[in-house]
Design a protein around this nucleic acid. Sequence first.
DNA 1: CGTTTTTGACCGGCGC
DNA 2: GCGCCGGTCAAAAACG
Length: 280
Amino acid sequence: MAGASCGDWPFSAEEAYADSLALLAELGWAAGFVDDGCAGELLPPLDPPPATPAGSVDGAGASSSSTDDGATPEAADADGKPAAATEAASKPAPGKTTKGQKRARQPRFAFMTKTEIDHLEDGYRWRKYGQKAVKNSPFPRSYYRCTNSKCTVKKRVERSSDDPSVVITTYEGQHCHHTVTFPRGGAGAATLAGQMAFSVHHHLLCNDLPALHSPTAQNSLFSRPVLSSSLLQPLHCNRQDLQVASYTMQPSSTMSSPASVPAVDKALLDDMVPPAMRHG
DNA sequence: CGTTTTTGACCGGCGC
DNA sequence: GCGCCGGTCAAAAACG
């Protein structure tokens, strides 16, 4: 659909995606993309780490029976109502999908993130349009749609039943517009890999740093501007970034206050961030 | 007042 | 054919 070429990301989608996987692998996370019928556009899924809690990415739907996950024929769009004009435009015949001519699949992928934050910031604005209890999982699954009326990208967010600390995010479709938050980087994020890279990177640097969000923490650690500038950098980060990422992925509970930050980690952060980039 | 979230109902696909 | 389940709609409520 649209979006495929909206932007000038300094790195190819494949590169960004591969790097995302490498990053996630380093952190011991599982990552990959759901079979979306668009194979070949992205790199193959990562071999599921043996120690991975939720098994595999298909967790996005794996928690449910075989009918769901990537296998679910998005034909599920039952609406067929005039109100869904924007979507209808991209669909053959709402609710009229039959075996053999199912609605064209949107490229999609999923990735897992160890965090306590359900909805990861990825630079786009999302509107929640539904929430459903998932079979075999105590956690509900949330459905989001891009607020851009011309954009049909959807996102599913759910927590792994195996490991509640793991959030499984599934994107479907590609944005045909820039991100709201970061116009420059947003162009790249418009691609699937870009979304993932952006989300993960953004997540690593911001969302999982609850301590940084508190006024007191901002005095002792980074300042928001620093983090923001970091976001403009592609995912091609060095090992130090990985270390920072690993650090930031600690459960929020342990990050609730600056005082809880282990000395060793503080030293690490000192190592990571030039004094000039720090606040106060 | 406009936008977003919540939530129950509805629809269609799939397995049995 | 029936029931289960995932995905979506849409009205009402909540929010800024």
